[in-house]
Design a protein around this nucleic acid. Sequence first.
DNA 1: CATTTCACCTGGTGGC
DNA 2: TGCCACCAGGTGAAAT
Length: 297
Amino acid sequence: MPELPEVETIARGVNDRVKGDLITEAWFGSHSEPFKTPPAQQTDGLEGRRIVAVHRTGKHLVCELGPPSGAPLPNHGSALKDALNTPLDASQDLPAAQWIVHLGMTGRLLVTFPSNPVAAHTHARLRLASGRELRFVDPRRFGRLEFRDLAHTAAFAAAGADPLTIGKDEFASLFRGRRLAIKAALLNQELLTGVGNIYADESLFHAGIRPRTMAGRLTRPRLEKLRLALCEVLEHSIRLGGSSVSDYVDADGVRGFYQLEHCVYLRTGQPCRCCHSPIRRILVAGRGTHYCPSCQR
DNA sequence: CATTTCACCTGGTGGC
DNA sequence: TGCCACCAGGTGAAAT
C-alpha cells in the first residue's frame, strides 16, 4: 500500500532515471478503470513530450512534461537545470503538461527496458528515447492515470496539506471541532495528504494516542506530539526506502525496509517493543487498526 | 455539512 | 488437491 514514503521513494527513483528523457511512444491497456483521462487522449498528449521532472504530491506521482514535440533538446545537465530554475517570464520553458499517477493499493511505476518481460496487469508502457521504458502495473486497478494539458487545465494540486511541511498551528487547526476518531482524520486526504493505514497507526503509537480518540478533543501539546511523530516516522521510512508489506517495490523493483521498524502495524498479538503488552487490532472507520493498549492512552 | 458506509478490484488465506 | 467464501485497503460516491 503505497503511502507518502513509498511514493516519495518511487518519485526519486523514477526522476533519477527518466528526467530529461523523451516519450517516443505510449501504449495503454484495455481495462477502463485505471484511466481518469481516456487512453487515446493520454497517447496523444504524451507522445513527443519530454519528461522535465518527476515528483510527489501527497500520494500522487506527478511527471512534469515539456511542450509537445519539436522542443529543442537541451544538453542533459545545464540547460535542463536552467529550464527548471527559470522564473515565470520564460513561458516556453515551463512544464506544459502533467502525467499524474496514483498507485492505489497495488500500483507500481517501474523503469525497465522494452525487452524485459511484461508483468501481468501492466496497464501503461511509455517508450523513451534513451531506450528505457516506464511501466505502470496494477493488479487491483485501484490506481489512476491522468493527463493534464496545462494550456487548458490547471496544474495538479493536492487538497490536503503535506505532513512533512505543515506547521504546528495549521496542523492543530485541521482537527479543531472534528467529531471523528483521530485515526480516521489522519486518513482523510482532504486534511493531510499522504498518510495511509501504516503511518497512521505507527505515528499514533509513537505519539501515545489511542486511534479512537476524538480528533477534536486532543490537546494542542498532544497534537504537536503527533505532528512530530508523523514527521519522524515518515522521514525515517523514506530513508529506508519505504515499507514493503505486501508487494511494494521502488522504481527498480527493490523492496523497502521500514516494515522491519513497524511497532504496531500488522503486529497483532505480538509483544509491544516498548512494554511487551500484546498489540491489539480493532476496526476504526472500517479499517484494520493496530495499537498498544498500555503505551497508547 | 460532517461523518459513515459501501463498491470497486485481485491475490492470498483458510475452511471443507 | 481443489474449490470457494472472505478479507485487505485508497478513494470516491452514496447514504445517514
